[in-house]
Write a protein that binds this DNA or RNA. Structure first.
Length: 535
DNA sequence: GGACGGGTTGGAGGT
DNA sequence: AACCTCCAACCCGTC
């Protein structure tokens, strides 16, 4: 039986550990690896120019690799349904293969495509390879609902056994039977477009720090794997948000597009762990980070309206306020808080910021300072992050805004002191906000407090060359904590109220903990880590 | 993967 | 030797 197969790349832009791609080449006389530039994404998804570049580079890399296997990538623009219908007829296709995608738009799209395929007698082969596990299976194992705590996920996964091993990389032996010829005008008809072809300006891109593609992803992975001691002692909370060289792997953009298989990543780490007796554990270890990804993917796949507050059953409803001026100041790095502004500048320019930097700016936008909805922040991250990943982005925004998963809303990041802990001299601020670079260390985190003559000497007058703070963090913090307490339906305590018997919250926790001695209970609470506070 | 203030402790160094 | 001050480092409760 000889198939004529299309492999449809969407995510999973790689030849390694790509079971659906392998399936396309099985018993096939002809295979067409395609990528569809779906106008939906151009219209509805916020994709900044840096991520466009990353995607196009990834496609370019794919095409290069396929060339070496006497194949090519066929890039086609248009609505997937229309494109595929056309191709089914034109190429007399009998089989369509693709990787399972769990995002809402993709799920709906794939249902429609499957119907179309069925109607045209095209066999569909779908494989799970973007996540460690089949998230639907994880949800089923949990009784039909996604696990909403990390602990719960770990318990489930332990029950389910280790994730599937990566499959073999597509190689010349696998493609041997492929007779698909490449026309002379392939580049013109099916070539990978340039940014300019898409109406994007290459000049708008930032410096090319993280080139897209499987090759780059693999090189990056290999460089990391050499640092075995670093891997075995890795603890995410101890990595620095404002080091000038990333303190984490920056493999997330490659995972997002599937240039790097998460299972390959997982098992390569496993090898390093096995060679060393001691290594850190989830949630802080590198394996732990992949489980966080799995956690949010699973939650995102099993929760309606996961990227919204309204209609989202796991999201606490908080009366955020609209303030376009503040939102714009935040998004463009003009809040007057240098650390916040430096992070947002790095985000817009380079497309990647450290996890804890994301924490700080997300807290600032939402429950910490500006009291603006996390959905607004989500959009800005969606546009600018190279690793913008639907489930992970939404999940972390809910986390940081204490809307779901994490509920310690009184843990507010201080936009002045947080960055100082790991960068006293403010080198990070000096790099991303050069206008502030000449301020002495004493004033770099709050230049407005510098005397006028020092501002003049630094060549930066606050109010003229750099904005004063758009609001006063010390004033807003208690106000916002009170608002959060109200949204949580809990009484806010002033000092006096405390003397009169304490808060509702305290009473609740006391009754929950029952017979435990108060002192011991407190200590237990203190020793817990942030991740232990999950419901 | 908070910040902060108030309290305690314990070592260095001075009287 | 005994006893002080100072201060950093930690503990702990609070928001």
């Amino acid at each position: 039986m000889s198939h004529r197969s299309i492999h449809w790349f969407r995510k999973g832009l790689r030849l390694h550990d790509n079971p659906a791609l392998l399936a396309a080449f099985e018993n096939s006389s002809n295979v067409w690896p395609i990528f569809i530039l779906d106008p939906w994404f151009i219209k509805n998804a916020q994709v900044g120019v840096n991520r466009w570049r990353f995607l196009l580079q990834s496609l370019q890399d794919l095409d290069e690799k396929l060339k070496k296997l006497n194949s090519r990538l066929f890039v086609i623009r248009g609505n997937p349904n229309e494109v595929l219908l056309q191709l089914f007829k034109e190429w007399k296709v009998t089989r369509l293969t693709f990787e399972v995608d769990t995002e809402p738009y993709a799920k709906q799209r794939d249902i429609e495509v499957e119907e179309l395929a069925k109607k045209h007698n095209v066999e569909v082969v779908k494989c799970v390879s973007h996540t460690l596990y089949d998230v639907q299976k994880t949800i089923e194992t949990n009784g039909g609902k996604p696990p909403l705590t990390y602990q719960r996920l770990q318990t489930l996964l332990a029950k389910m056994g280790p994730p599937p091993k990566p499959v073999k990389t597509l190689d010349s032996s696998a493609v041997m039977g492929n007779k698909t010829t490449v026309s002379e005008d392939h580049n013109k008809k099916y070539g990978v477009p340039t940014l300019a072809d898409l109406g994007k300006s290459p000049e708008a891109c930032g410096p090319l720090l993280f080139p897209g593609g499987e090759t780059e992803g693999f090189n990056r992975l290999e460089r990391m794997l050499k640092k075995t001691n670093w891997i075995c002692t890795f603890e995410k909370p101890k990595t620095e948000p404002n080091s000038l060289i990333p303190s984490t792997t920056v493999l997330s953009p490659y995972l997002k597009f599937g240039c790097l298989s998460v299972r390959t990543f997982y098992y390569r780490l496993q090898e390093v762990y096995l060679q060393n007796k001691k290594h850190t554990q989830p949630p802080v270890s590198l394996h732990g980070q992949l489980l966080w990804r799995e956690f949010f993917y699973t939650a995102g796949a099993g929760t309606p309206n996961f990227d919204k507050m309204e209609g989202n059953p796991i999201c606490i409803q908080i009366p955020w306020e609209k303030n376009d001026k503040h939102l714009e100041a935040w998004a463009n790095g003009r809040t007057g808080y240098p650390f916040i502004d430096a992070v947002m500048t790095q985000l817009r320019r380079e497309g990647w910021i450290h996890h804890l930097a994301r924490h700080a700016v997300a807290c600032f936008l939402t429950r910490g300072d500006l009291w603006i909805s996390w959905e607004e922040g989500q959009k800005v991250f969606e546009e600018h992050l190279l690793d913008a990943d639907w489930s992970i982005n939404a999940g972390n925004w809910m986390w940081l805004s204490a809307s779901s998963f994490f509920y310690q809303y009184f843990r507010v990041y201080n936009p002045i002191s947080f960055g100082k802990k790991t960068d006293k001299n403010g080198d990070y601020i000096r790099k991303y906000l050069p206008i502030l670079s000449k301020f002495p260390e004493k004033y770099i985190y709050e230049p407005r407090t510098a005397p006028r003559d020092i501002q003049a000497k630094a060549g930066c007058i606050i109010g003229k060359d750099y904005p004063p703070p758009i609001l006063d963090h010390d004033k807003m913090r208690p106000i916002n904590i009170k608002r959060m307490a109200e949204a949580y339906g809990k009484r806010f305590d002033s000092g006096q109220d405390n003397k009169n018997g304490g808060s509702l919250k305290k009473k609740q926790s006391a009754s929950e903990d029952g017979d435990e001695a108060p002192k011991k209970k407190v200590k237990k609470f203190r020793n817990k880590k942030m991740t232990d506070f999950l419901m």
